[in-house]
Design a protein around this nucleic acid. Structure first.
Length: 443
RNA sequence: CGGAGUGUAGCGCAGUCUGGUAGCGCACUACGUUCGGGACGUAGGGGUCGCAGGUUCAAAUCCUGCCACUCCGACCA
């Protein structure tokens, strides 16, 4: 992308409403625009990041055996009356009437709807296990939205729903998703620790929140230090290996870890003092097993091996990609701007033309830029006729993992500068050598 | 929903107490000089002062009502 033809509305002054660093940087980098309290437009740079997070989330969901669908944002109240939640959900649910005065709602979650889909088609235990997910906008009319997209009213959520014949099978579905979540957050460069959690209005009796430790986190959390060094399940994990996943989850839940609601001071006190971590955390994922809470009232049953109809055991599993954008910035930034993980960065590298209009510099940049595109990289080419300082500042702010700095001085010696955003390491190398650093990228 | 604030140009702010032609910095436009870590000069453009009433010769400023947004608390992917 040529910056001169892009839409990247950067701000030099920080809007006063932005309190936390991720919100400030998202506004300054032109990623989002607030439209109302807790409601945001996603501008090109922000959308790129969101899409890249979604891609990782999808890959790991698919790997675990979940199947993607897409359900609507607007739902019928009737469906929610079946589960009893239309009354129970309260003012957080945005209720709407259509032109025929039918009661509708903007979905805060999709248990009812996915259960309806399930009961409409699935008749036999032989079709289980089944896990359906979608990535869709949700609306929860929070009393007090804050921290930008960290706690918006409208937010993007990946929500998966598992259907199994009995509790033991559902437990394995839970473990599959648990494992997928560990992988997802690790791929995003985040250390997310699963913590026993309260189940809230979703219901059920088995639930974990995945918490990223961060100074600006909303909740107080307590855990064993060893979790920070636990290894991530590998990509070739066998998601059908019941015993293997059970062992994995047992290990990841063997040590103390709890949010403040579930905190047990005595149990935490039993952890050796130098292993106690008491910190703040950002909830980036939440998984639940809730048995037949929805399948029973809504009649989601299948025929078992004995021919009898039995309600299916369900679980639901949420990740907030829009919140993850903020969490990633909280975890990766410095004074100059955002430092993205390579896989999530909106652009893989920025080519900085330090003297746009200079024939030799322009030619070198063009050559570099086209070659990078041809190799499948998302390259950003800063071809604006602007001062070098402004270009460095822009590149630092938006956080491309690499900067390739091309100017007349370097070119006179046949060199360009390659700079790593994360550590700031720089080296002067030939244009060809710089290009060789970025091999063909798989689509 | 309780408490505290803020609404003046795209962003950050002054002006409001004490009513009298709407300002500053950045950004934007034009020209010139600059150019390896957010330059400088000159000349410009851009505002129903959140909205609606009221008081007054005169309202950004005073009064009343409303709306929006932010922060602290209780609640939450």
């Amino acid at each position: 992308m040529r910056l001169s033809r892009y839409f990247l509305p950067l701000l030099r002054d920080t809007p006063k409403d932005a309190e936390i660093v991720s919100h400030r940087l998202m506004l300054r980098a032109g990623m989002i625009r607030q439209q109302a309290a807790g409601i945001y437009s996603w501008l090109p740079l922000g959308l790129r990041v969101l899409d890249k997070i979604n891609r990782v989330v999808r890959e790991e969901q698919n790997r675990s055996g979940a199947i993607e669908i897409l359900m609507p944002t607007v739902q019928s109240a009737d469906l929610w009356r079946e589960s009893g939640r239309y009354e129970a959900y309260g003012k957080e649910m945005l209720r709407i009437r259509d032109r025929h005065d039918r009661e509708m709602l903007y979905g805060p979650t999709n248990e009812e709807m996915v259960t309806d889909i399930f009961r409409s088609y699935v008749r036999s235990y032989k079709d289980l296990p089944l896990n359906l997910y979608h990535i869709q906008w949700k609306f929860r009319d929070e009393v007090r939205p804050r921290f930008g997209v960290m706690r918006g009213r409208e937010f993007l959520m990946k929500d998966a729903y598992s259907f199994d014949i009995d509790q033991a099978a559902a437990r394995h579905a839970y473990n599959r998703m648990f494992t997928a979540y560990l992988r997802t957050f690790a791929r995003l460069g985040l250390k997310a620790i699963p913590m026993r959690a309260d189940t809230g209005p979703i219901g059920g009796d088995l639930s974990h929140e995945f918490i990223v430790l961060a100074a600006t986190g909303e909740s107080e959390v307590f855990c064993h230090r060893d979790y920070l060094d636990f290894e991530t399940p590998p990509a070739d994990t066998d998601f059908d290996d019941v015993a293997g996943l059970r062992g994995l989850v047992e290990r990841w839940t063997s040590l103390y870890a709890a949010t403040s609601e579930m905190h047990d001071a005595a149990a935490f006190g039993a952890v050796p003092a130098d292993s106690r971590v008491s910190a703040r955390g950002i909830e980036v994922g939440h998984i639940f097993y809730f048995g037949t809470k929805y399948s029973e009232p809504m009649g989601a049953t299948v025929a078992g091996p004995d021919g009898q109809q039995t309600p299916v055991h369900m679980g639901s599993y949420g990740i907030g990609p829009s919140r993850l954008v903020a969490a990633l910035i909280e975890a990766g930034h410095d004074e100059a701007g955002i430092i993205w993980p390579d896989e999530i960065a909106p652009f893989d590298m920025a080519v900085l033309n330090l003297k746009a209009g200079d024939a030799a510099t322009d030619a070198a940049c063009e050559q570099l830029y086209r070659a990078l595109l041809a190799k499948g990289h998302d390259a950003l080419y800063d071809d604006r006729d602007d001062r070098p300082g402004a270009k460095f500042a822009t590149a630092d702010l938006i956080g491309a993992p690499w900067q390739i700095i091309v100017g007349p001085k370097g070119l006179a010696e046949g060199k360009v500068e390659l700079k790593r955003r994360a550590g700031g390491e720089r080296e002067q190398i030939s244009l060809e050598a710089a290009l060789a650093r970025f091999p063909e990228k798989a689509a």
